[in-house]
Amino acid sequence: MNPSGKPLKGKHVLITRGGEQGEKFCMDVASTGGIPHMVPLIDFRMYKDPNESYYFRQLGEYDWIIFTSKNGVHYFFEHLKKYVDDYSLLQHSVQFAVVGEKTKEALDRYQLASCFMPHVFTAEEFVREFFQNEFVAKKVLVPKGNLAKSTIADGFRSQGISADEWIIYETFYPVNQVGRLIPLLKEDVLDVASFTSPSSFNHFMKIVKQQFLTQHVSKLTFAAIGTVTKRAIENEGYQVGICPEKFTIDKLFQEICRYFQEKEGKDLHEF
């Protein structure tokens, strides 16, 4: 059996997230004996919403600004710096809410406190817990990406609360990564493929189908960061072997380690 510090020894892990989070994921995998293959299948860029000036003028009217992702925080303030210099002024006029820990950490960097975060990091749970806590809101703003669903805004509207959705960034597929993924699949190099969003999995499947690699993909263990991504994978007919209870990349990595530790222990026991 591998030493406890090397649960991924010899395992090839596909990491479909880029940037700082992807780099850290790679280092974590390598530190536990695994071989990381970072092939970012989605990327993000600023989006110019035609209603941007309206949302900015309305900032003082919102009771809550709700962030659903780390990217949402980053791009919101990238847009905002065109209009204001001192973000701390917002703290006195509006309350902030976040869906998860990483989003909260991103907001903390701007020295702005989040007043609410659900125990389970999903949009559905956010809505349920927010109203369970009996917070007061008349008008809210949800800065988001172009592919994000309207679950939170719809939840507020169903309660008679005005909810604006400001598209501040867009997701796109980095086509230059395709050539790196194909040989990994064709040669059956990978043991596990990890996905941190439905978008990354959808791009993965687009490549798989275009290159007729379905047979190779069926051999993989799939790891999903949360229930929404898990559902996207299952809708394509694949079983998800790894999904953490807490929907963060760190927890996803830990769950991958636990999965292979348990699998190795079971294999040895059967032998």
Rank of each mutant, 00 (worst) to 15 (best):
S53G: 09
K219R: 14
E78R: 15
K246D: 08
D250L: 15
F271S: 09
K70V: 09
S197I: 11
H92V: 10
K102W: 03
V120H: 03
D85A: 13
D154I: 14
V120L: 10
C257H: 04
H119N: 09
F271P: 00
C115S: 15
T227C: 12
F121P: 01
A137H: 05
R180K: 14
Q132L: 13
E101V: 11
I256F: 12
D267H: 07
D250C: 13
L80H: 13
K11D: 02
P50N: 09
L184W: 06
F195W: 06
V189H: 10
G100R: 01
A97H: 03
I42N: 00
S150N: 09
T229W: 07
G19V: 04
L184I: 04
I256T: 10
P36N: 07
E105H: 11
R128K: 12
K206M: 15
Q177S: 10
E129K: 02
K246F: 14
K104G: 07
Y238A: 07
H74M: 08
N51V: 10
I242A: 05
D250H: 15
P36T: 05
F116P: 02
I207Q: 02
L8A: 06
F247P: 07
T248I: 13
F126R: 00
V29P: 00
S53H: 12
I161F: 06
Y75I: 13
E101Y: 15
D267K: 14
V228C: 08
F247N: 09
D86P: 00
V29W: 01
V127Q: 00
S114N: 08
R45W: 01
E270Y: 10
P7M: 06
Y83I: 13
V208D: 03
L252S: 04
A148S: 10
T16P: 01
F44S: 03
P40W: 07
A30W: 10
Y87A: 10
I182V: 13
M27P: 00
Q211F: 15
R57K: 15
F253V: 06
Y62M: 07
L8H: 07
S31Y: 04
F204D: 02
K81F: 10
F77C: 08
N2E: 12
Q215E: 12
R231Y: 14
Y238N: 04
V136Q: 11
D28N: 14
A224Y: 09
V73A: 04
T151L: 04
I161A: 07
K263V: 15
Y259D: 11
L90D: 05
R128E: 08
V99N: 04
D164I: 11
S4R: 05
K266Q: 12
P183S: 03
E105V: 09
G34H: 04
C243N: 08
T16L: 00
I207L: 09
V99I: 15
H79C: 05
Q211E: 14
M38Y: 09
S218Y: 05
R57Q: 15
E264A: 12
H37G: 01
V73K: 01
